[in-house]
Amino acid sequence: MPKVESYAQGTPSWVDLSTSDQPAAKDFYATLFGWEYEDNDAGNGMIYSMAQIDGSPAGAIAPQQPEEAQQGIPPHWNVYITVDDVDAVAERVPELGGNVLMAPMDVLDAGRMIVAQDSVGAVVMFWQPNQHIGAEVRDEHGALTWTLVMTNDKDASADFYSKLLDIEVARDAMPSPDGSSVHQLMVNGAPVASIMNMPQNLLDMGVPPHWEVYFRVDDAQAVCDAATANGGMVYMGPADLGPMGTIGFMQDPQGAQFGVQSPPAG
Rank of each mutant, 00 (worst) to 15 (best):
P208Y: 01
S56P: 01
M105E: 04
P191H: 10
G10D: 07
D218W: 01
Q64W: 03
M236G: 15
L32F: 08
F33S: 09
R171Q: 09
I81V: 13
Q22G: 00
E67H: 04
P264C: 13
V115R: 13
G121C: 03
T82G: 12
P264L: 11
L101M: 06
E140L: 07
H76T: 02
N44M: 10
R138I: 12
I47F: 11
L165E: 11
E136L: 11
V213C: 15
T246C: 11
V207H: 07
G259L: 00
Y214A: 02
L202I: 02
Q22Y: 05
E68S: 15
S20L: 02
N99L: 15
W35Y: 12
V115D: 10
E95N: 11
A60V: 11
G111H: 11
M174A: 14
H141E: 07
G179D: 03
S13W: 00
M113R: 03
M46H: 00
P57I: 09
P23M: 04
D225T: 12
E95C: 11
V169I: 15
I53V: 15
G55D: 04
T228R: 12
S6R: 08
E168S: 10
W35M: 13
Y161S: 00
T228M: 14
L148W: 11
T145M: 13
G255T: 01
G55W: 14
M150V: 14
A60I: 07
P191C: 05
